[in-house]
Design a protein around this nucleic acid. Structure first.
Length: 562
RNA sequence: UGGGGCGUGGUGCAAGGGCAGCACACCAGCCUUUGGAGCUGUGGAUCUUGGUUCGAAUCCAGGCGCCCCAGCCA
């Protein structure tokens, strides 16, 4: 970041700067608190970047702390996946910790609250707890067990910890105010009893597990986290967050909330994503159509583009949808194009081949044409592409009867074959169904390289591949997964508006240079889009994924004229 | 319904009492050996009502709308 650029500023950065200035803190430490119960998606990136960058910008530290307080949901598989994805994004942390690292200390703190008369063991059933919590308009009722002696509470808590009671039979609750207008303050549950399954790290050692409210803030204090940045849904929890720290008289971390990030034309909830995978609407968590980081990575999105997108989205407290801020996927795509345009090697590939025969070209001649690898980057150099009498061009680049404004190949029209020659369409060959299967053209030998010595212009340049030299390849074209901007609306509505054309597989031809490619390689297929080599790719059967198409002005014109 | 939060072009974010601006999208044009990229330009917004003020997107009050909270989820 150079000095020309104005520093990114937002209400969180301002608050952090203010805290440093007025001495509330003299350092900055943030934490990244994923729950290891699923794969990361684009929505997570916002929180990740905020936590990472705010620490970094202030010469502070980031701690990656897994929020593993619920053994019924969390798995080691996901901690590994989350670490891998976060690294891929370029996020760096000082250390990795787990909420479960602090279970023993947290228990001590709970004992302290019990001793101060600020927490008690409640024997009510879950149903009773719920009923007695009251409603938005009516206050709750105090539990009959609320005023037990400290000694009895201590004894019961100890026995809960030792596993003497069955799941659901008792909880530890903070003693606050059962008629508080903020329901989170109506004696929130701190510990519940869970015997099975074993915790992914602590095994069967613990029979009681803390809830989020009785864990997160305490862990923040234990780790000296200065700024605990979270999403808007936790705003209502802040009074409780602060109450605990105050009663405990420990380090006072500051919680600040911001709006989550979402994308249109996709779903982000874990439940819905899981259904897509488990019911085989997509081919796994890393399906290129998924908004997961693994999916986007396989699709060919770069970490740089994703981070740039998230950065440019900014931060706010706007809360007009339950999903937070909903970004237009077109904006993400524009960041991807911007990045890939500068860095991708250009190649020629024909997705839907149409055979072209140059009638006046020598049968056995093969010429090597010079092509530039990236017009945006002179250092990318040039390459040779073989040219011969029989070629493949894109079906879309030929029309027997051209619509208005169409200036590609059609009978009588002259176009340029990129880096090769001008050709003019002479006649066509059709099959028994009347479909054009072969286009015959003549070429102008004086236009080699693509320029006419007589200064003659053509309106169109099309890409091609030499039939004899091209390599067959599988090309997977992707479109948005859903046809509606907000697939969430309605019950199973999100499945009802799945886009049936979100994946289409083509067998095309690519220039010989593309025969040696390895998974993750990125290219621009000229005039079509950015593609990357899929992990399924082999030397015998190269497989390419569409990352994002190029802007298609002709498609727009054509659509408008309809 | 009680509590809390939020309302700026289609979308996202600025303007922190002084000319409402940027990006994406959209539209028009220029340029072009990618109908790509690039460049230029047009259109379009302060939820509403009232108040304070010379002056309000900004401060105040009311209204309206949307979002969050009644898990032993996070």
């Amino acid at each position: 970041m150079n000095s020309e650029e104005t520093k990114p500023t937002d209400f969180i950065r301002e608050a952090v700067a203010e805290d440093l200035k007025n001495g509330r803190f003299n350092y900055v430490r943030t934490r990244l608190p994923p729950e290891p119960n699923g794969y990361l998606h684009i929505g997570h990136v916002k929180a990740f970047m905020i936590d990472y960058l705010i620490a970094k910008e202030n010469n502070g530290e980031l701690i990656l702390r897994f929020d593993d307080t619920n053994p019924t949901k969390e798995e080691t598989e996901f901690v590994d996946a989350i670490i891998e994805d976060a690294r891929w994004l370029g996020i760096e942390w000082k250390e990795v910790t787990f909420a479960s690292d602090y279970f023993a200390l947290l228990y001590d703190w709970a004992v302290q609250l019990v001793k101060k008369g600020l927490a008690y063991v409640d024997d009510q059933s879950p149903e009773e707890v719920s009923v007695n919590r009251g409603t938005f308009t009516e206050p709750g009722k105090e539990s009959p067990y609320r005023n037990r002696s400290v000694e009895e509470n201590l004894d019961l808590l100890e026995r809960m910890k030792n596993g003497e009671f069955p799941d659901g039979s008792r909880v530890l609750r903070a003693k606050i105010d059962m008629s508080h207008p903020n329901i989170n303050m109506r004696d929130p549950v701190m510990y519940r009893i869970i015997h099975e399954p074993a915790h992914h790290r602590t095994g069967n050692k613990w029979k009681i597990y803390p809830l989020y409210d009785w864990s997160h803030g305490q862990n923040d204090a234990m780790e000296g986290i200065t700024h605990s940045l979270c999403s808007l849904e936790y705003l209502n929890h802040r009074p409780l967050y602060e109450w605990f720290l105050e009663q405990l008289d420990v380090f006072r971390s500051r919680q600040i909330e911001f709006a989550r990030l979402n994308l249109n034309y996709t779903v982000m909830s874990k439940r819905k994503l899981r259904r897509l995978v488990e019911e085989n609407y997509v081919n796994g968590w890393d399906d290129p159509r998924m908004p997961t980081l693994r999916g986007m990575r396989r699709r060919g999105y770069t970490a740089e583009a994703i981070v740039d997108f998230v950065q440019r989205m900014g931060i706010s407290t706007v809360a007009t949808s339950n999903a937070g801020v909903i970004a237009d996927i077109a904006f993400l795509e524009s960041r991807v194009r911007d990045d890939l345009n500068k860095h991708s090697l250009r190649r020629m590939a024909v997705l839907k081949p149409l055979k072209v025969v140059i009638d006046n070209y020598p049968d056995d001649l093969v010429e090597e044409m010079d092509a530039v690898n990236n017009p945006e980057d002179p250092n990318a150099g040039t390459r040779k592409i073989p040219f011969s009498k029989v070629l493949y061009i894109e079906q879309d680049d030929f029309r027997e009867t051209p619509p208005p404004k169409y200036y590609r190949l059609y009978p009588g029209n002259e176009v340029r074959l990129r880096y090769a020659y001008f050709i003019k369409c002479a006649h066509v060959v059709k099959n028994e169904n009347g479909e054009v299967v072969e286009v015959h053209v003549t070429y102008d030998p004086t236009t080699r390289g693509g320029d006419s010595p007589d200064g003659r212009k053509v309106k169109s340049t099309i890409h091609w591949v030499s039939a004899r030299h091209a390599k067959e390849a599988e090309i997977r074209m992707y479109d948005r997964l859903f046809t509606k901007e907000d697939p969430e609306e309605g019950e199973d509505g999100f499945l009802a508006c799945l886009n049936p054309n979100s994946l289409s597989v083509h067998t095309g031809y690519v220039e010989p240079r593309l025969a040696q490619t390895k998974p993750g390689d990125r290219f621009q297929f000229e005039r079509q889009g950015y593609f990357c080599t899929d992990p399924d790719s082999t030397d015998d059967n190269p497989v390419f994924n569409l990352t994002v198409s190029l802007k298609d002005t002709w498609a727009k014109i054509e659509k408008k004229s309809k």
